[in-house]
Amino acid sequence: MTLREIKELLDAEVLVGHDQLDKEIKTAFGADLMSDVLAFAKAGSLLLTGLTNPQVIRTSDVLDIAAIIMVRGKRPSPETLRLAEELLIPVLTTKYILFETAGKLYAKGIVGCMERVDDERAFT
């Protein structure tokens, strides 16, 4: 799915990255704990989160996250948005809750960046 299709599906607003909507997305990871995102999320995945502080952007930069979807209608601070613009990481916000967001994406073929934490060596 492209980020543009994801935006339509989630009735999301694009806050950063209007020029990156053609990006192709295949996998996703959802969490509010950045240490878990660091441990498990894979490069090129979509990050679903309810956190909005600048560390979400830093974490995404470290992992080469393709784009961030802020769920539950969360809106990041100007500081967070500035950092996302600087590091060229798309940020979208949707009013759907995390569960619904994940379900809608899964139904369209987006899968988790891993199925279980023990189904492969998680730490690679």
Binding site: L38, A43, Q55, R58, D61, V62, L63, D64, T124
Partner: peptide
């Protein structure tokens, strides 16, 4: 500025023709 050094180091390593996986783990 938390994370600023990590972003800097990641960008530096990226420019050194090191594998993506090594860069990602080092940045992490």
């Amino acid at each position: 500025n938390a994370g600023h050094v990590s972003s800097q180091i990641k960008a530096l390593l990226k420019g050194m023709k090191i594998s993506k996986e090594v860069v990602r783990r080092a940045a992490l």
